[in-house]
């Protein structure tokens, strides 16, 4: 097809530069190639872009010094935002952008726009190189005796395989168990929470004990164990909170179709874990009419009137229920810890 891609007709001597100009296609001259005025105009355009870039750098410094960080401005479309941030973004952005725009304008208007041709070469190495490499390899094999000394070879390979083991072993202490965790497996730890028999249920945030009257029918309260206040971890009490958080909902006792244990409610008040059994998001989207609880992360839906069973979505297990009652002073308390591990499934869970 040389007649269709008329490339061969021209002198293709590889120039010193490694490429040759194309002469096979009609080249249209640009205005700046023929008209010195146009060329000067292009030059002025590029120069002014570079100049403007520097001006924006100055403006950046002015904004940095002059604008109070707390000033807010209203910009249509973008809304109320930090004046400093917008000023810095605009000046820095334009300072940088204009360098690029100038360089490209320079290339497009004033640098040659004639395409050039360069030859490719096979990736394959010349035979002589391959043979030399092979000969060198053979020499190395022979001189080292790698092929002859079988024991030497095998023990070396063995040592190389074994030596990283200490590095892996040291990773064990990525988890240093706390005194309470000592001797327990991860599965044991995941299976218990702070809840114990007769521990008061307090509302999340205020730590105020909850009375049954505090919760109207159809209502929902996020709650935690009273002892959570005493828990002191480096990051507050987030570990304990992450497992023990519950929600309390109240419905008419005859609306409750099933529970995870007989009489686990208290006068229509039900306590369920707040942590989704799918991958562990906290759930508090409750639709009081249907008694459905919806996880905001992956939309698993649980029916709290029906023992917390899964109605829809990717979660496989029901929400664990906490058995509750009231103490002598009339405050809601847990009757025991959860009967099953809360939160996402794990292998040893059974």
């Amino acid at each position: 097809m040389t007649d269709i891609t008329p490339h061969g007709g021209h002198d293709q001597q590889p120039a010193k530069l490694g490429y040759s100009p194309r002469a096979d296609i009609e080249h249209r001259l640009r205005l700046a190639d023929t008209d010195p005025k146009a060329a000067r105009r292009a030059e002025r355009q590029v120069t002014s872009m570079f100049l403007l870039s520097m001006v924006f750098v100055v403006l950046f410094v002015v904004a940095y010094i002059g604008i109070d960080p707390s000033t807010e401005v209203y910009i249509p479309v973008f809304g109320l935002t930090s004046a400093l941030n917008i000023a810095l973004g605009l000046t820095l952005g334009l300072a940088i952008f204009l360098i690029g725009a100038g360089a490209i304008q320079w290339a497009k208007k004033l640098m040659p726009d004639v395409e050039v041709v360069q030859q490719r070469h096979d990736q394959l190495s010349p035979d002589s190189d391959t043979q030399e490499a092979a000969a060198n390899y053979e020499r190395g094999k022979e001189e080292s005796g790698f092929a002859r000394f079988r024991m030497l070879r095998r023990t070396l390979i063995g040592a190389l395989i074994v030596f990283p083991i200490p590095l892996v072993i040291m990773l064990k202490d990525l988890w240093v168990p706390t005194p309470e965790e000592e001797g327990k497996s991860p599965a044991d730890i995941l299976s218990t929470t702070l809840w114990t028999a007769d521990m008061r249920i307090v509302s999340d945030g205020t730590y105020k004990p909850v009375r049954p009257e505090d919760l109207p029918v159809g209502g929902l309260i996020s709650a935690v164990p009273a002892d959570l206040q005493e828990v002191e971890e480096l990051q507050g009490n987030l570990n304990a909170r992450g497992k023990a958080a519950i929600i309390l909902v109240r419905m008419e006792p005859d609306e409750i179709r099933a529970q995870q244990g007989d009489g686990w409610d208290y006068q229509g008040i039900l306590a369920y874990s707040k942590i989704c059994t799918h991958v562990g998001c906290p759930i508090a989207l409750y639709e009081q009419r249907t008694h459905h609880l919806l996880c905001p992360c992956h939309q698993s839906t649980f029916d709290l009137a029906d023992a917390g069973n899964v109605v829809f979505g990717p979660a496989a297990r029901r929400m664990p229920q906490l058995q509750i009652g009231v103490d002598a002073e009339g405050y809601l308390v847990a009757k025991s810890d959860f009967a099953e591990p809360v939160g996402p499934s794990f292998w040893e869970r059974g």
Partner: peptide
Amino acid sequence: GIIALVGGL
């Protein structure tokens, strides 16, 4: 430059 502009706006 465009990333800076977007980051500012």
